[in-house]
């Protein structure tokens, strides 16, 4: 496979459950890198903690497996010291928006050139299926056996408000969009967020009676629609997919270069 050269094959088969969407995200992300023709040395992948964060162990780039929620903080450090490198930060929904919520909004506000991939399975899978800020109301989890009453964040709206300059959303069913969006996000100069709805059949699916991984992917097909589609007007409950924001704004490490120049001028 074209993407095998980017894998640390000695760690396969991977630890994710059968049908876990995270493998599909890994698959799509490697295709994006392959299409960009980037070498392994040009990419730094930084991850935090969780099922999603294990992704950095499987790729043969420069990788950092850091602490819960703090992947973006580590990535900011790498980017500031080596701005020529491409930073990719895959995070789970809890890692990105609960534990790492603060780092997330401030990285977006600074518009630092990092690609944040939010692998949204709406649950803490690794620790046994606790509800997350992306679970939403009426979701059953081990810590919400009678259903959660917490409303969920909308990753796209949150990123938009915080100042991200590239924001896209897709699902594991729509595989061709995964590599297309990640490719564009890596090329984008500034903070790029790609939210990917990814199934957790073991915890989310089982507790919420959504069936197998296949059934959950069919659900993604049925409950999402392209941005601005007619179907969305008829059924406002559908989740939109596509690129929501793509704009140019001053990038943080470039702005910092100007400060370095100003400070070191004779």
């Amino acid at each position: 496979m074209a993407v095998n050269k980017y894998l640390r094959q000695r760690f396969f088969p991977h630890l994710w459950c059968p049908g876990c969407g995270h493998g599909i995200v890994l698959n799509g992300m490697l295709r994006a890198v392959d299409k960009l023709g980037m070498s392994k040395n040009e990419i730094v992948m930084v991850s935090g903690i969780g099922c999603s964060a294990r992704i950095s162990g499987y790729v043969d780039f420069h990788t950092l497996h850091t602490i819960h929620g703090r992947a973006l903080a580590f990535a900011t450090g790498v980017k500031m010291s080596r701005p020529e490198l491409n930073l990719v930060v895959p995070m789970g929904d809890g890692d990105a928006l609960a534990i790492g919520g603060n780092h997330f909004i401030h990285a977006a506000r600074r518009n630092i050139d990092i690609t944040a991939i939010v692998m949204n399975n709406r649950i803490y899978g690794m620790t046994g299926g606790q509800y997350s800020p992306l679970s939403g109301q009426e979701v059953v989890a081990t810590t919400a056996p009678f259903a959660s009453i917490d409303p969920s964040f909308d990753v796209v709206e949150l990123s938009k408000a915080a100042g991200a300059t590239f924001i896209a959303r897709t699902t594991t069913y729509h595989v061709k969009q995964i590599d297309d969006f990640i490719k564009q996000a890596i090329l984008h100069e500034g903070f790029a967020v790609v939210e990917i709805l990814t199934q957790c059949p073991t915890h989310f699916g089982r507790k919420n009676k959504q069936g197998s991984a296949v059934d959950m992917m069919k659900l993604y097909r049925d409950i999402t629609t392209p941005i601005g589609s007619k179907a969305k007007q008829e059924n406002p409950n559908l989740i939109e997919r596509g690129i929501f924001v793509q704009e140019e704004k001053p990038e943080y490490s470039r702005e910092y270069d100007k400060i370095i120049e100003r400070a070191t001028r004779g």
């Binding site: 496979m1 095998n4 698959n27 799509g28 594991t172």
Partner: peptide, 13 residues
């Protein structure tokens, strides 16, 4: 190639 693209185990080529 939809099988290859969607395989979560990266097992298909």
């Amino acid at each position: 190639r939809l099988c290859e693209l969607r395989c979560p185990d990266l097992a298909i080529e």
